[in-house]
Nucleic acid binder design. Structure first.
Lengths: 225, 225
DNA sequence: CGCACCCATCAAGAGTTCGTCAAGACACCG
DNA sequence: CGGTGTCTTGACGAACTCTTGATGGGTGCG
């Protein structure tokens, strides 16, 4: 099911969009400000974002910038600002479309379809990954090392999945933390270290010298296939 | 150079678009009806199409259908029809965007940039940059020189990103310092030199004679692609 | 030629982050 | 109620990064 993240500070608008999108078969996630939007982005990885530019905490353009630094998810901007300069800025910052309020719901839905259709060739997300002497099946939730079955806890699975689904890509510790817990508990990288250590102990051949679950000091972690 | 095919039956509109697009560095091809458009499409393989729906010979929607049977080239529809049903039809038939006349030229240009950007090859869209013998992926935070992986520290990444995201543009020392640290407390350029030296040592072929990470004495630094 | 200026490079201490061990808190289940 | 497994927090040595100072090379100017 297509997941759409709707960001708008007006509860009324949020409700209307939620209603229409849900009726159309979308899986809808909402956020009322930029901070919540970025958190939801890390938590749910939506397939498309509907973004109002007038947010209470962060400027909409900065939200676009922030999203684009870590994701290529399509963004459809929804705004009451009619000036062309806002449109140009938003589109040049990486937004995919711009709809001015008031808008026709059918048009918005069509634009959403166009945006998701373009992004359709998603990065192939295989469920099976093999590295070192370990074999992981993300869908069956099974893992083995040297043929022997390995048991992983829910949190370990969550963390492992985030890394394995983005092979070679660095994942920020902030990103990992917001995904594991609901909020980035400002100072808790030690939390991640524990689970990375667990994963390495269970999956790496030399947990002391990891070859696939790598640390990028000061930034985050990376899965090296 | 980006090639854009403009399809419109009004000579005046064609001229206006031709003028503006050429001035923006586009390679412009024009067609006054659907038949000519499809011919041009086969001949030139444009990078993006600007299509008016009101054509004398073929209905605009049919043109979209025809284009989409053989090509994925982005289509930006330009139309005087304001009804939402036309927009929905056009978008669902495979158009990428819909602009109603009268339109703002800057907005159209921004939408064209957005359309071409999406269709750009994956590496470019993903923030991959290549220069000298080095290859940098700003999103995955990976870098290689002569194929060998290179490790960069957070500050090095930050500095490199500032330079690479503004190719050819000079970046002031002050600007770099305020970005790296919170404040230009001590406008000490020696701080920058250390990190520029690091980047050059890691990425340039001849760190002593940088060809891409250049110094502008007394001003700042510049990335030369 | 000496001087001032800016830049590049080397070296070393300070500061931060990482990996590991250990122990308490919590929920689930027999 | 006790046992098991999981989550969460704190502490400490080790590794890494940041930051500063000092030295040397090049250029323009009096």
């Amino acid at each position: 099911m297509t997941c759409v993240l709707v960001v708008d500070d007006e509860p009324q608008m949020l409700r209307a969009l939620h209603l229409n999108l849900t009726a159309r078969g979308y899986d809808v996630v909402t956020a009322e400000d930029g901070t919540a939007a970025l958190n939801q982005l890390a938590l749910r990885e939506p397939d498309v974002i509907v973004l109002d530019l007038g947010l209470p905490d962060i400027d909409g353009l900065d939200v676009i910038r922030a999203v684009r630094t870590g994701s290529q998810v399509p963004i459809v901007v929804l705004s009451a600002r009619v000036g062309s300069s806002d449109k140009v800025s938003a589109l040049d910052l990486g937004a995919d479309d711009f709809v001015t309020k008031p808008f026709d719901m059918n048009e918005l839905l069509a634009r959403l379809r166009a945006a998701t259709r373009r992004a359709a060739p998603e990065p192939v997300r295989r469920g099976r990954v093999e590295f070192g002497g370990a074999e992981v099946d993300l869908e069956a939730k099974t893992a083995t090392r040297e043929g022997a079955p390995v048991h992983l806890t829910p949190t370990e699975w969550h963390l492992l999945e985030l890394l394995l689904r983005n092979p070679g890509k660095l994942i920020t510790q902030r990103h990992l933390l917001t995904a594991l817990r609901g909020q980035p508990d400002h100072t808790d990288p030690s939390y991640l270290r524990i689970y990375m250590a667990q994963l390495r102990k269970k999956l790496e051949q030399e947990p002391g010298r990891p070859r696939h679950l790598l640390t990028e000091p000061g930034m985050g972690y990376r899965f090296n296939p």
